[in-house]
Design a protein around this nucleic acid. Structure first.
Lengths: 358, 358
DNA sequence: TTGTAGGCGTTATCAG
DNA sequence: CTGATAACGCCTACAA
């Protein structure tokens, strides 16, 4: 490229083969890359014109715009996001705060969110609360001044705190419903119903729910729906919990589960279901022979544990994607204008961990 | 708090019970929180004094500093990171770029990195390249102006490109060695040796290596060491690959693995090992009866697949942690001063997927 | 020890 | 359509 013959001066787009040494040196010495001032100098226009050309294309003379673009490209220009954020108040950063990054259900969300953000030229900041409401609140406070919005995935915060944050920055919730705050929710009702239909159809009359943390809205909702269905069907349902939403949390509940003498157990999530099955195996309880087990999420691993786990899947990547799309919509970036909560379809995946009552 | 009696004026730290309405309204109307100007007004000092008091504690009059701190706290002040980044050139953000966020080995790294970053008041920006070198390079270019440094985890970039990035921003590599660029590496030699000892000790004389992507430095290194050990021991070793470093990548290799007629297979990572075992099961090949299988990483799931996977574990959370500590060290933030590469200990986890040659 | 003033890179408001 | 100029919030010599 560089050793092509310099073309005639009047052919647009091929100018700027040569960068004035003075300019080049100044940029190099500064170290941080070219600025709109450098471009302005090279293209012989005012910095404000450069800003305009690069920010709102089409609103100015074709020729000038082309000149500016060419110069910018020649200097390998990138906006300084901090400088940009100052007058606009927009950092072009979104925060995703998750409770436990090692929960495989999270990375689906992250992938979806990252893609949607990247597609819109936004960067994703990630914060982990390690299941602690305090740490979560603190992290969010820290981030408020530097991000344009929040995706709160599986948050442990109170409604009050969430509203407070939402009043300062756009917030989209995942797996949590708070009035007046948009959220992406799995269709709990349908999901639980599918699972209950499956279990009831298999003849189970005593069902236990291994619940998650008290602060988990979605865990409560699942339990509520289970109760409704159990009452309707005239079968017994008991809640065992709260438990940590982890493999260990599931394992540690095995004695209480056994004591409940239920023939089927629905765990709040797959992590717990897997923990329970492992502990059950260690205790000599046969699954699904003596006890059927099911979970939610269909995480990596659910498919190949033995027996393979029956579970209610929801499209987490989609949830992550939709959450940032909603955020961008509120920020006026995307094409969206739907500020409301939406339900995500779920599907029951029947595998070997559940079986008809013997 | 707010309805306590206002204490005598001369007790420090208890001033500012009442915020002048004018100030309060101005801040509220602005919407973006208090600035050092607001604090200055409240504490009756110059903004630069506020900056000093908050930035370099101890270098000024105790009394003034206390006044400023009190005022700042009263106004719930947070630095505007963008504004701060402008004069200093420091965004207080670190980027972690990963090739595939759905690989369970990644979240160990992320957790460690996030913790270390948060502890130092840094935020973590995450970028995923989806195994594409182009996407990776593009994402990095975008981020260069807005982050203070990069952790490149399992990167697919060329040495040249990595050096280029490293010349613009501090870079720490994970699972990749490039001269003059600090990196956190597993101890490949020891790891492979442990595994080879195990396999050779079990009588295997024909070993296959299911390699990862061509661009994976660590995959090549593992293969090299396997070859060395095979030559030393006088046994046969063949490479089967390259393959995608995923479950599917492992599954799709099953025919080639079978064709190789090796009694033991070492996969580049656990994901591939799992894929291979599933495909083997589907094809009626017994593991470890007809074929032993081992992997690397000890990801979530390796323990409870059947048979449980023999694997070489390395402490990924530690790798993530060390990588940002090194970055912070270079940035002059941490207490560290070790700019060099370091080796992470690995340990062999023997499980059911490997067995003595029948 | 504290205040003054200029600058960081960009946007936005006005003129021209 | 383009240029000048004042913010944006903070930092940092330099001066007092």
């Amino acid at each position: 490229m560089a050793d092509l013959q310099p073309p005639p001066e009047d052919i647009p787009g091929n100018e700027f083969e040569v960068i004035p040494p003075a300019l080049a040196e100044r940029i190099a010495r500064r170290g941080a890359g070219a600025t709109i001032y450098d471009i302005a100098e090279l293209a012989n226009v005012n910095p404000s014109t450069v800003s305009r050309a690069l920010t709102k294309p089409g609103r100015m003379s074709q020729k000038t715009e082309a000149r500016v673009r060419a110069a910018a490209e020649r200097l390998d220009f990138r906006f300084n996001t901090a400088a940009r954020a100052l007058p606009t108040g927009r950092s072009h950063m979104l925060a995703v705060v998750v409770s436990d990054i090692t929960n495989p259900m999270i990375f689906g969300i992250l992938r979806g969110a990252e893609q949607a953000a990247a597609a819109a030229g936004y960067a994703l900041v990630i914060a982990e609360s390690q299941e602690s409401g305090l740490a979560e609140a603190e992290a969010i406070q820290r981030l408020i001044p530097s991000v344009d919005g929040f995706v709160l995935a599986t948050t442990r915060l109170s409604d009050l705190r969430i509203r407070d944050i939402a009043s300062r920055r756009p917030v989209v919730l995942i797996n949590r419903d708070v009035e007046h705050v948009p959220g992406i929710l799995p269709d709990v009702r349908t999901g639980v119903d599918q699972l209950m239909d499956h279990l009831l159809g298999a003849g189970h009359r005593t069902i236990a729910y291994l619940s998650g943390p008290t602060s988990s809205w979605i865990s409560r909702r699942r339990w509520e729906r289970i109760v409704e269905r159990a009452v309707d069907a005239g079968v017994a349902a008991v809640e065992i919990g709260p438990n940590a939403p982890t493999v260990d949390g599931g394992s540690e509940a095995v004695d209480r589960v056994r004591a409940a003498r239920s023939t089927a157990v629905i765990a709040f999530n797959d992590l717990m279901a897997i923990g329970l099955m492992r502990a059950a195996a260690a205790a000599g309880i046969s699954v699904p022979g003596e006890m059927s087990v099911a979970g939610f999420d269909d995480i990596f691993g659910s498919e190949f544990i033995v027996p393979a786990l029956t579970t209610v899947r929801s499209d987490l990547a989609r949830a992550g994607e939709r959450s940032v799309e909603q955020l961008l919509g509120v920020l006026g970036v995307g094409e969206e204008s739907t500020p409301l909560s939406e339900l995500l379809e779920t599907s029951l995946i029947v595998r070997g961990s559940t079986a008809p009552l013997a």
